[in-house]
């Protein structure tokens, strides 16, 4: 389990990059960390991987503090958004380095993955394209058999074949070895397939943290036309009207919502599941961070 509890971090100024952030990734979960730009996702990730030290609060993995703790850190596979640290050497040199740093580095696995990535092991990484550098990072990181996989916008710049390949490898590890994954991304469509838990961050805080199943079972979008008032018992998060059609975002189990709505005898009523993207937009809309109806 990865756990951040009331973590606060400032970088010199008065602004808090992380403001009492709490985050829990259950063991064996695939956790999608999403948020507005500048919300502090990468800062949170750098605490989880032990790069930053928090001003206050605690950061633990499996109950142990991470900062300056090599035995915990050797079990974390980390792919940063900026691969600068990797680009100095060749894959061969980096593999030797990884073997020295990570006791569980698996040479057999490294050899098996050679066929997947097909990169030249003697070329310096900085001569590779950005996407290929990512391939190399995944090759090395998956070879060290991490218990925790921490990925900061991992598939940005990867072609569709490689994206799928990477997720397929990572998810097989989740199913086979119970690997715990934390991934930050803006691609909510993709996260919907990959994740079972989601955390939405805004301004250094956690806005909402749920299992995806809970989100899907407890939010529903309704389009309806009715001349009667809506039942008071409904928990309406968002409401908009276009002509006679009302669109409501409701909190509640779809079947219950449908039964309650039937009471107002709608002429037309359509229940739609809510996508992660919609949940993201409505949740952030509640904080004032929303799409303005603006015409230039």
């Amino acid at each position: 389990m990865i756990e951040l509890s009331h973590v606060t971090k400032t970088f010199g100024g008065a602004k808090r990059a992380l403001d009492e952030l709490s985050l829990t990734v259950p063991q064996g979960a695939v956790y999608g960390l999403v948020g507005s730009n500048g919300a502090g996702k990468t800062t949170a990730i750098r605490h989880i991987t032990g790069i930053y030290r928090q001003d206050s609060g605690s950061v633990t993995i499996g109950g142990l503090p991470v900062y300056e703790n090599p035995s915990v850190k050797s079990r974390i596979g980390y792919i940063p958004d900026d691969l600068g640290v990797f680009s100095g050497g060749t894959i061969k040199e980096l593999a030797a380095f990884f073997r020295a740093m990570y006791p569980r580095f698996d040479l057999q696995r490294y050899a098996a993955l050679r066929d997947v990535f097909r990169l030249d092991e003697a070329t310096p990484l900085r001569r590779f394209s950005k996407g290929m550098q990512k391939h190399a990072a995944f090759w090395l990181t998956l070879s060290m058999r991490p218990d925790y996989l921490v990925l900061d916008e991992p598939v940005d710049g990867l072609d569709p074949v490689m994206r799928r390949q990477i997720w397929s490898l990572a998810l097989e590890d989740v199913a086979g070895y119970g690997t715990t994954v934390l991934v930050s991304s803006h691609n909510l469509r993709e996260l919907e397939d990959i994740c079972d838990h989601v955390g939405i961050m805004h301004k250094g805080r956690m806005l909402l943290e749920r299992s995806l199943a809970e989100l899907q079972d407890n939010f529903v979008k309704v389009q309806l036309v009715t001349e009667h008032p809506l039942p008071q018992s409904l928990h309406v998060l968002h409401e908009s009207t276009l002509g006679r059609v009302q669109t409501l975002i409701l909190r509640g189990e779809p079947q219950t919502v449908a039964n309650e709505l039937a009471a107002s005898a709608p002429m037309f009523c359509d229940l739609l599941p809510l996508s992660l993207e919609e949940i993201f937009i409505y949740e952030l809309g509640g904080t004032g961070y929303d799409v303005k109806n603006f015409v230039l």
Binding site: L171, E172, A175, D193, I194, C195, D196
Partner: peptide
């Protein structure tokens, strides 16, 4: 197919397949 096979093949979360 096992949960693991299907998770790998479809690139879908194993818990989703389990469900």
């Amino acid at each position: 197919p096992s949960v693991r096979e299907l998770a790998g093949q479809l690139a879908i979360n194993p818990n989703t397949i389990q469900r």
